[in-house]
Computed example of a mutant assay.
Amino acid sequence: MTPDAKTPKVRASEAFEARLNAACAALSAGFFVSDAALVPVRFMERTIGRTDEAHARSVAQLPGASLRGGALVLPQNLEAFGGAMRDAGLSQGWRGELLDLRVLEGVDAQPGDVVGRMERALFRPLGAATAAVHLVGHLRRPASEADPVFILGRRSASKLVGPGLWDGLAAGMIRAGESPAEGLAREAAEEAGLERIEAADLRSLGRAWISRPVRGGWMHEMSFAYALRLPEGWRPRPVDGEVEHFEAMSALEVLELIEGGRMMKEAAQAMLLAFGRLLAS
């Protein structure tokens, strides 16, 4: 049994719980936006994404792609085609990082089946499905909603998405061939310098499907959230430059960031789930 498990839960104030419930409802409402009007993107006879009509028409002008039957059809050579999208200014930057390309729907395939690998910068423009991890780090079980036990990182001003917004201890997309646990361990080491995660200190907060428009395309993503009681005496340090600095905050301070739109939405969701576990309802 971990020290956290031995410590009785505390009860959050009614005012905090009311604000927490309102924030959860508002966030959840924006996490699934109907994509029925989007153009399906097909690869090897399977739907792997959905994107807006204007973007689909632009992509269809590239060699090997076409609009057929109301869908954007991609060629089989995704590596060469990805380079063509980049050169045409139709990608979301370029990372040199591969993610698993998964089926959204298909007659002879199950949603989630991996059908290839593709450059990360193409996923949002094509509305292809991604998977990501979000880690809530806390020093101990909070004594109240005003106890500053949660460690947050402020995103670098140079980030393409959400520059300057607050994030959890670590977050990022799961790379090709990785499991959620492997992705979580890698992101924690790369972003916060946490080299080892003890299974006894880690809690799964669940997963959620996200479908909503984002800058440069559409997000279709499975988000895996975790909470971690951090090792005693350990302090985070920005390693890869994606985080500007870290701060310890209370649940109340974090909630104020969320209400003010100053936190990444997926990180906010993970934080709210953690509050529900660590502060008794």
Rank of each mutant, 00 (worst) to 15 (best):
A71E: 15
V33A: 11
R207T: 11
R102I: 12
A208F: 10
E244A: 10
R11M: 07
S13I: 09
A109E: 02
A146H: 15
A192H: 00
R57T: 12
C24L: 14
L252V: 11
A80D: 03
E14H: 11
G233K: 05
P125W: 00
F43K: 06
G137K: 04
V161M: 05
Y226E: 02
A22W: 09
R68K: 13
V149T: 12
A251R: 08
M219F: 00
A15T: 13
F275K: 04
M249N: 06
G70L: 06
D167M: 10
V114I: 15
A22N: 07
G162M: 09
R215T: 04
G83Y: 02
R212N: 03
M271D: 08
G260T: 00
T2Q: 01
A18P: 08
A146C: 11
L278G: 02
R212S: 01
D4C: 14
P180I: 05
V115R: 02
N77Q: 14
L228T: 09
D113C: 12
W166R: 02
M85C: 14
A128N: 06
T2I: 00
A267Y: 08
T51R: 10
A26G: 14
M264Y: 14
L74K: 05
A225Y: 09
F81C: 03
A5Q: 09
A15C: 09
K265T: 15
L38G: 04
A65I: 07
M85K: 13
S58C: 09
A251I: 07
A23Q: 11
R124N: 07
A15G: 07
D52H: 14
Y226I: 05
A208V: 15
R95K: 12
R68F: 10
P236K: 06
R120K: 14
R215W: 03
R117E: 15
